[in-house]
Structures are given as C-alpha cells and as structure tokens.
Design a protein around this nucleic acid. Sequence first.
DNA 1: GTGAAAGCGCTAACAG
DNA 2: CTGTTAGCGCTTTCAC
Lengths: 329, 329
Amino acid sequence: MANIQQVAEKAGVSVATVSRVLNHAASVSTKTRLKVENAIKELNYEPSMLGRNLRNSESRLLLVLLPSISNPFYTEIINGIQNTAIANSYNILLCETDSNPQRENIYFNMIKNKLADGVISMDPTVNRQKLTELAESHPVILCSEYDEGGSVPFVTIDSELAAYQAVKHLIRLGNKKIALINSDEKFLYARQRRSGYERALKEFDLPIREEWIYHTRDLEFQNGVQAMRMLLELEEKPTAVFAVSDTLAIGALKGINGSGLHVPNDLAIIGFDNISFSNMTNPTLTTVSQPMYKMGVTAANMLIMSIKGEQVESVVLDHDLIIRESTMG
Amino acid sequence: MANIQQVAEKAGVSVATVSRVLNHAASVSTKTRLKVENAIKELNYEPSMLGRNLRNSESRLLLVLLPSISNPFYTEIINGIQNTAIANSYNILLCETDSNPQRENIYFNMIKNKLADGVISMDPTVNRQKLTELAESHPVILCSEYDEGGSVPFVTIDSELAAYQAVKHLIRLGNKKIALINSDEKFLYARQRRSGYERALKEFDLPIREEWIYHTRDLEFQNGVQAMRMLLELEEKPTAVFAVSDTLAIGALKGINGSGLHVPNDLAIIGFDNISFSNMTNPTLTTVSQPMYKMGVTAANMLIMSIKGEQVESVVLDHDLIIRESTMG
DNA sequence: GTGAAAGCGCTAACAG
DNA sequence: CTGTTAGCGCTTTCAC
C-alpha cells in the first residue's frame, strides 16, 4: 500500500501538497491538483487513518456497547445510531460485552486510547463507577438504561409509566390476578417497571403478591418459559402476565402453550419492546413499543454533539402500547 | 491524557524504558519497573493504540461484515468469532452493511487503511470483485456464503446436501407436494439449497413445479408470511414446505396459522439455521442446524492464521437436521 | 501556491 | 539494564 510520500514523489510535489489535495484545501492550483489526483489513482493510494488519526487525535469511530446482540431489541436502535453516525462521517463499532467486565475494560481503553471518539452504552450491567469516571474526560451517552441522579446524559423512555399503563390495560380487561415476570432488580428499568406495575395494582385496590412476581436471571427466552412454569404451579394462578421484555413474554407464551391453557382466553400476556418477532408469535403479542430507531438517532446525535464539546441534555422519549391478540380474550 | 513522554519524565527514565515496561520486556530491573509502574498509576496513563498501531502497522482489530444484525442466525457465529478473537488478543468490529455498497466501501477502506488487520465477511451481497481484489493484499475470510471457484478461503456447510436431506425427510413422512420458499437465487446458498431440493424430489420421482417455488426479496419474517399466503392460494396446495431460513419458515408458520390450517397436521414445515426463536414457535420448528459457533471460531482462527501470513484452507463443516413439532404430523 | 520541517505517541535497533 | 534516536503516515504552521 502506497503512502503519501510515494504519491508526492510520483506527482513531483511535496507531501504537504498531497495532504492539501486529500483534504480539499483551497490553496492548490488546478494543475497541481490534477497531477496529484493522477498519482493517487495510479498508485491506488488510500490515506492511512492511523497516521491521520494520530495527528488529529480523532478516529471518527463511535463505540456502541451492548450486553448481547442476541436480543433483537437492540437491532433497531443500532440502525438509528448507524445511520446518524454515517450521516456525520462517523462509523460505529459494535461491542458485545456479554456483561463481562474484562471485555468492558478493553472497550473503555479504546476510548481512552483515542481509538474511538466516544461511546454509547446500552449495557445495563456496565460498571457505573468506571463509566462515570470515563465520562469525566470522554464523551459518553447512555441509551435505554441510565443512571438515576448520575451525571452522564441519557436517552430513554418512562419505564414506570409504560409499565403502569400496560398493567392498567390488563386490569381494564377484567384481570385481578396479574403476575409480573421481571428481570434482576439490580437494573433500573426492572425497578421502574415493577414500580409501575405496583402503582397500577394499588390504584385499583388489587393485592401485590410476592408469589406473582418472578425474577429471571437474564432476558433469554428460556427464562420466560421457566418463569411461566413456576407461575402455573401456584395454588392461585394469575390470569394475566406482564413481562418486562418481549423475549421473556415469548418464553412465557411458550410455557403456557405447553400447559394446555390458552392465550388470551385463560391468560393474557403483555411484553415490552415490540421486537419484530413479537408479531410472529401465535397469538401475536401485546407489547410496549419503545421508539427504538429514534432512540438510536437521538443517542448518536447527542454523542456527536458531546464530541464537539457542546453540552447535551438527557431526553425521555414517548412509548406506545401495541395491542395485539395476546390480550384480546 | 498523559503520554509516554510524561510518564518517562515522572519516573526519571527514558521513553524506551517505559515502552519496555508496557510491553513486559524482560530486560528491566525490578526497581526501574516499579518506578515506571508508579508513574503510570499516578498519571493515570493509558498507552495510545494509535501510536502503537502506527508504529507496528497493526491494529489487532478484526472486521466482521454482515448484511444485517436483525437475523439471529449471525448471533452465534459472532460469539464464536468474538471469543476466538479475544483469546488471541484481537477485538472485533461488527459492521452492518445493509447490503449497501457505499458502507461496504467504508469498511474495505478501514482494512486498506490499517485500521483493521483483516476481515470476515458473512455478507452474501458483498461486491465479489472488490472483495477478491482486497483479498489479494489483505487477509479475508468468507463465512457461510462463499465464492465458488474463487480464491478467497471460506468456512461453510454443504447447503445442497442439507437441503436434500431436509426435503427427503419431508418425503419420507409421506409428502408428495413439497414447496420451497427460497431467497434470491443470486445467492449461492439459495442456488445450492434449491439444487438439493430438486435432487430429493427427482430421486423419488416427484414433480418439480415452478408454482411451488417462491422467491423472497430478503429474509425478514414478513417475506415468509407473504410466501405462504401465495402458496395457500394455489389450486393445488403443497402439503409441506421447506424454507431456506428459519426467519422465512417462522413467517410461513404465521401465514398458515392465520389461514385456519394446522401445522403439522395439514402442512409440515422445515426451516434452516436453528436460530433460538425456532424453538419458541408454536409448534416448534424442525430445522437444519448449522454449527454456528464453530463456524465463527473456525473463521476467526483462519483469519488470524492468515494475518500471520500462513496459508489457510477452506473448511466445510457438518450440519444436523433437528426434528421438532412442525414435522411431527 | 507550494515546500520544508516539526511532531502526534509509540517501538525497536543500536549503543553503551 | 538503560538511553538515544529514527521513523511509522499524516497534518499544519511557517517561510518563501
């Protein structure tokens, strides 16, 4: 691979001039530019980002941290991020942390090392302290999951309200025994969604029973299946289930299908996220839709502003309850 | 952010010594090392990969090109790649091309620019000529989709055989009218799977009817739904369907569920890929399992060997037919 | 309008 | 065992 030196020699100019041509600087005569452009073509030259980045100390790369790409929830967000990034001449680096602190460290170092200009974290398991520390000297945006009272800007939805509305929908359908399939309450969204669930129950004077609240280890389907099995073994079975993610809800659906009970006739289900698969299940899944693409766009725009040194404010976006077959009993 | 110079000053040594400590070179006295390590800690120093990479002309980053992260098929492959990469002190850069040549170009340039050391492409829509050209001077491995008769090493499965076996399974169950939901036959795997489908039919003297072969635009669920609707409108309806991807098969399942027909009693379905969803559908989906994790591991190992300058041979891995409810009529 | 030269942060050869 | 120094590829003053 040719370098700028060789191009300069071939064109019979200095490296400075080649650099000027590359960066579309004004002060190059047409004649010289043509010579340089020809040399570039002939040598099949491509400028090295490494040299450029070192010099400019910017990489035009954005890091996107996510716990796992297996949850389709992230797909649309990433599209939003990616399109916005590209529109601003940035590229994105998708980094799966698998909630592994060691991997996390690797990626944090990439930021510190100037291999990336900023980071959008969607990983709720991320080490908060380290992230906050990083955010003091580097652009960081949180997406979806965030830090209550923290200093790092975020974009998210009102999880408490969304959960409240979802559960209220179940109550209006006549359900009095409503279970919650929650993930680990170390996550803020899990605490918020539980809180919304409880607010709705309280408002309608329905009891909050611990045995109807199941906590899963993570958001894989299988956990939903397992949760549902447990709930169906109870003396007093719930007549409706609110799951904090579609993956869990779909697993729950599977668990019910295996039990001879029918959704929505015997049991109503609501999920959360509106992943594409939630419209493919049988029955289709009622769910809370987050504006995923918009979240991605917003997060990326915030990050890019932050990289430019501008101040950014956190954003709370709107959600929707998408009513489908699983609550049409 | 401190640089190596400042660390050297603080420690009262030369930058070379600091570099030695950073790279765990043997020839540093314990006393000096301690001094340097202290200085590093005090200054909160992190070496810049940019400087290092420029010097070493390596980035220890591997590019992974995929058309879209929305197909869960890629998830496990990526896990395999990622784990292998990390075990060899590489990191991966996930790049969604959306089958967009412009994005592709960006990523190819990253390779040329030494921002990444090599690339694994899983994108069947990738510009073959450009990729082959790139492969002449840079490490490139194809994963899953490959170039027949091309020079770029690949790891894949025997799609023709897998399709043949899947269709044969349907025939053995007594089906004589078997439809194929295929993707665009510009893709090699699509041509191969069709070929396997036809071989099985011929072997049992079953007719190959064009109206039972449906081509989709891409692999999104919705295309499967659409395909199934078309097939169910035929005068002579098929009694079984082989779809070349689970996403299509799941869509087809959805299409059937909406029609009042029953799987597997009225219609059997086989998919391809064994994505995690395929076990969550109702009924669960019979499918061809590709060794996705192993494919990822193999591809990554091949790429790393190739980066080291070693010769690598293409690999064809084994597949399995996973029999589930959708063919248990 | 163009060139010479410094320097971004780091490593490695060489010298001592 | 440690320091000096050149140089990776590029951009950007500063002269001319």
